[in-house]
Nucleic acid binder design. Structure first.
Lengths: 311, 311
DNA sequence: TCGAGCATGAAGCCCAGCTTAACGCCGTAT
DNA sequence: ATACGGCGTTAAGCTGGGCTTCATGCTCGA
């Protein structure tokens, strides 16, 4: 394999027509250029230039090498340009993942803003459950993932000020939104009688001890339901598992049971479903997961996401 | 424009999956590789690798650069290979030029041999008169030219042993053949009576003082005719100029005049044309003209040409 | 005949880029 | 738990490739 630097010197010489001209063009002395060409000729064991009284003319081997050198030089400049495009967000790729309700309610707006700002960046979005996401980000299969976990307790803005932080797994976590979870019931469910008639009245988890549950089939949600009920001192009766909120809505309206429905999904509930806050309060903490050194595109999308979260 | 050497180091790293592996592959220490990658990252102001616990993984910019690096590396090896093909005569080009009668009689056999020996070399042949040829060879437009000049006198093997020589113009001249010139006359031309009846009888130039000449229109031949006659003490009467020997033959047979016809062209004369040697003897000295540093293909063709000349 | 412009060679210098050595980090095996 | 091996990184120092400078030879045009 040839030394690319010498090849580029040869290219300059032949394009310029003389070693001296190439030297001034390259910022060298003619002697340096002459030496470079000479060693290249030694390497390929063939003369590459015929020395003329005014300047030089390429031999057949010289012309051949120059053609290749042109390609090489073109690639080198193209490579630099394209990397510049990448860092300037004029090009590139951003692979997103989110869970279903975030993909439907949280991301479209952010994606719209991002696309308007950086039309050159190719976006992709796939639906992934929170449990799959960290490994994919760590392995570089994803650039940014929207995930969540459950939080019992206040769920106020305690994490708002904390900003991005690197978790134990070497990933950056950025808080986006606290998604309050409701319980969704059929209109005349017994638990409603204990709670009161106002929509703002909360339903105590313990009053759902005998309810039949329609459960989101995502792993995190399944576990959370069991945990919540355990904290209230009972084991839930699971009547149904589904990952589709419209179907959940239909099942509730048919009186099959009750379900946990976060704010981000309430728009998928039918009109006859009754929604109430839970006591103790239950919150889905929605976060963005990103690599510790995010790409420019990842950082830009994070910026969009955090700037759009409600005050 | 990026530094191609660093780019190739990056390529090795990403292909190997770790800096250490790339280092052993390149014959460097891991430290050297790390430093190269680090400076490349500084140059493009972007991380190119994400450092993992076991090895590294390319970032988007890194993958982009590797694609270009692959092309560059491919070109560098291809370039070396193709130059090797050129010097080994597995490829390349040989641009020949010759005057008409050499092209017809001298070259076809040599070209056949050459093609059989070096089928990868592309050959081209154009017809050129001797006066045009030196500049074209000097400028690199031709690789090898067959030319001639006239020689009065013995024309024996005096130049045979001398071999190739560099003439005053910086071109290499290789003697190929001495082409003896005949005079071609109509069957009952008066000059034949002075000479004798035997085909080996020579015709003295002075006996052609009153002849009408059909002259080859090439510049060298035209001048030579005048010079030869001047040496014999007269100026030739030129009746016709032609560069086509069959036509010359027809004109002679029609009794228009006489002509100079070298051995290489006698096969183009009609049966009724009478051919005799001249006194003083006139010889076309046929030579090959080549650049002072001939390409391998040129040298090979010269070898074929000289090895085929009659002993 | 001279001088301008070209390529080249010898000599020397300097820094890019290598090696060595030491360190921190992670994951695994003992 | 602790040790160990493999990873990448850093600092320091050395070496040689590749540059400059200077001098020479060549060709061409004035």
């Amino acid at each position: 394999m040839l030394d690319p630097r010498r090849l580029l010197v040869l290219r300059a010489v032949i394009r310029a027509g003389s070693m001296s001209a190439a030297a001034t063009e390259l910022g060298y002395t003619p002697s340096a250029v002459s030496q470079q060409v000479a060693t290249l000729e030694r390497e390929v064991r063939t003369p590459l230039l015929v020395r003329h009284s005014r300047g030089v003319v390429p031999t057949e081997a010289g012309s051949l090498l120059v053609e290749h050198a042109d390609v090489v030089a073109g690639r080198l400049t193209r490579a630099a340009d394209e990397v510049a495009d990448l860092t300037a967000l004029r090009a590139g790729r951003l692979r997103l993942a989110a869970f279903a309700s975030a993909g439907a309610r949280l991301l479209p707006g952010a994606i719209g803003v991002f696309r308007r700002r950086h039309p050159g960046v190719r976006l992709s979005l796939e639906l992934r459950e929170p449990e799959d996401v960290p490994d994919l980000v760590r392995e570089g299969e994803l650039d940014l993932a929207i995930t969540f976990d459950y939080l019992t307790g206040p769920g106020d803005g305690s994490a708002v000020a904390s900003g991005p932080s690197v978790d134990t797994e070497g990933l950056t976590t950025t808080w986006l939104l606290d998604d309050v979870v409701n319980v969704a019931l059929p209109p005349h469910h017994p638990a409603l009688e204990d709670a009161g008639v106002s929509p703002t009245d909360e339903i105590d988890v313990s009053t759902l001890r005998d309810a039949a549950w329609i459960r989101d089939s995502g792993q995190v949600c399944r576990e959370q339901l069991v945990e919540m009920c355990a904290a209230a001192g009972f084991t839930p009766h699971v009547a149904f598992d589904s990952d589709d909120f419209p179907m959940v809505s239909g099942l509730i309206e048919s009186g099959v049971g009750v379900a946990l429905v976060p704010d981000l999904a309430v728009h998928q509930m039918g009109r006859r479903v009754v929604l109430r806050r839970l006591r103790p309060r239950l919150v889905r903490r929605i976060r963005a997961l990103s690599p510790p050194q995010p790409s420019p595109a990842t950082a830009a999308m994070l910026e969009v996401l955090t700037s759009r979260r409600p005050a």
